[in-house]
Simulated assay, not measured.
Amino acid sequence: MVSVQNRRIVFSFLLLIIVVFSSYKADSECDFKAIYNFGDSNSDTGGFWAAFPAQSGPWGMTYFKKPVGRASDGRLIIDFLAESLGMPFLSPYLQSIGSDFRQGANFATLASTVLLPNTSLFVTGVSPFSLAIQLNQMKHFKVKADELNRAGGLHILPPSNVFGKSLYTFYIGQNDFTSNLASTGVDRVKQYLPQVIGQIAGTIKEIHGIGGRTFLVLNLAPVGCYPAILTGYTHNVSDLDQFGCLISVNKAVKYYNALLKKTLSETRTELKNTTIIYLDTHKVLLDLFQHPKSYGMKHGTKACCGYGGRPYNFDQKLFCGNTKVIGNSTVTAKACRDPHNYVSWDGIHATEAANHRISMAILDGSISDPPFTLNNLCRS
């Protein structure tokens, strides 16, 4: 029979284990303390609309129930990643009111490019906030945060030791690919894609130089399946594959992604003690476009929000949410009532449902090269 003294010893030992385990779990909840994102409209959480306020409905209708500066009906991939790491949605760097940068900042803006937009490679309609500008914003942000922390700090800024414990994400390059696609053709676009990839690798190196150690780079989506490209790029029926996507365009995308993967591998070798992950989000999104019903959806290459009906519900003259006189009628590009059944939100961007599918693949590590499972590092 166990004595009272022994029972007390056992109880105290168990209590100690519980306390230690609880303390360990709290301290190890997430290896990353912040996220810093660079990108275009696919990951812009309000930067462009903070700079140029104008957004109206039906943007944000699914999750936020109102426009919140996102090019979707709901959450973006970066939103899902932040949630999975137990962090709030990233505040746009350009948003002066209501921002909280303690756990990161978002430098992405709608229509941003990797290469500078004032070169002859680009037509008008792209953002002035190219990747080089976003990098400068990041550097300035870090310098000012360090200065203010030494002076006593602000409650909305991260501590100086956060930058080396942060996740740096890149979802950019789509506008470099598509901005001149219709006017110059696939072959001309392919010529400057190595410059685009070189700039992304160079940006990673610069951030590494100021303390960044973990990088996630999302590859290019199968834009040959986008309603906007299918209606804006001159083609014949023979140019389409069995799923209705443009063969030549998606071949060029595969070329870009293969080169991006190779370049990131070389950069990984060059930068010691650094984690650089290539995320094959293209694989998930392509499967969604090709087999939407396998994911409980109904429509692949048809936009939820648009004008024009079958087969794409997209008109280059009338974008989602806008009203215009076409012919003798005043028409509006309206949203569908069931965006969860669509891969494409507005012909250019993904729905929240599609973004959620891609995010799950990122979290479980199934599209990471080399293998990298966020679920093992942070609570979901």
Rank of each mutant, 00 (worst) to 15 (best):
V2T: 11
S12R: 09
L14N: 07
L14D: 06
I17L: 13
S23Y: 12
Y24G: 06
A26Y: 10
A26S: 09
C30L: 08
A34E: 00
Y36E: 05
F38V: 04
G39K: 04
N42V: 12
D44K: 04
A51C: 13
F52K: 13
Q55T: 02
P58R: 02
W59L: 11
G60F: 04
M61I: 15
M61N: 05
P67N: 03
V68P: 02
G69E: 01
F80K: 00
F80E: 08
F80L: 07
L81D: 02
L81E: 04
G86E: 07
M87F: 10
M87K: 09
L90W: 04
Y93S: 07
Y93N: 06
Y93R: 13
I97N: 10
G98R: 05
S99D: 03
S99V: 06
F101Q: 00
F101A: 02
Q103G: 01
G104K: 04
N106W: 01
N106Y: 00
A108W: 01
V114L: 08
L115K: 05
L115M: 07
P128F: 01
F129N: 10
L135W: 10
H140L: 15
H140D: 14
E147R: 12
L148H: 10
N149T: 11
R150D: 14
A151L: 15
G152I: 09
G152E: 09
L154F: 14
H155P: 11
I156R: 12
I156V: 15
L157S: 09
P158V: 11
P159W: 07
P159R: 10
N161Y: 14
F163W: 12
G164H: 03
Y168L: 08
D176R: 03
N180P: 11
N180W: 09
D187W: 05
Q191K: 13
Y192I: 07
L193M: 14
P194F: 12
G198Q: 10
Q199A: 14
I200A: 01
G202Q: 07
T203M: 13
I204C: 02
T214A: 01
T214F: 03
F215W: 05
F215H: 03
L216P: 01
V223T: 09
V223G: 01
Y226H: 11
I229A: 07
Y233S: 02
Y233V: 14
T234E: 13
S238L: 04
L240H: 04
D241Q: 07
G244L: 07
C245A: 09
L246P: 05
K254E: 15
Y255V: 14
N257V: 08
L259G: 13
K261W: 11
K262V: 13
T267G: 02
R268F: 08
R268D: 06
T269N: 15
L271S: 06
L271T: 03
Y278W: 08
L279H: 04
Q290H: 14
P292G: 05
K293N: 09
S294F: 05
Y295A: 06
M297G: 01
K298T: 14
G300V: 03
A303L: 07
G306A: 04
P311C: 05
Y312P: 03
F314P: 00
D315H: 00
K317F: 13
F319C: 01
F319Q: 08
V325N: 11
N328Q: 12
C336T: 06
C336K: 00
R337I: 11
V343H: 05
S344I: 00
G347V: 00
I348N: 02
I348Y: 03
I348C: 00
H349D: 01
R357W: 12
A361C: 08
P371M: 11
F372R: 09
L374K: 02
L377P: 00
C378S: 03
R379C: 10
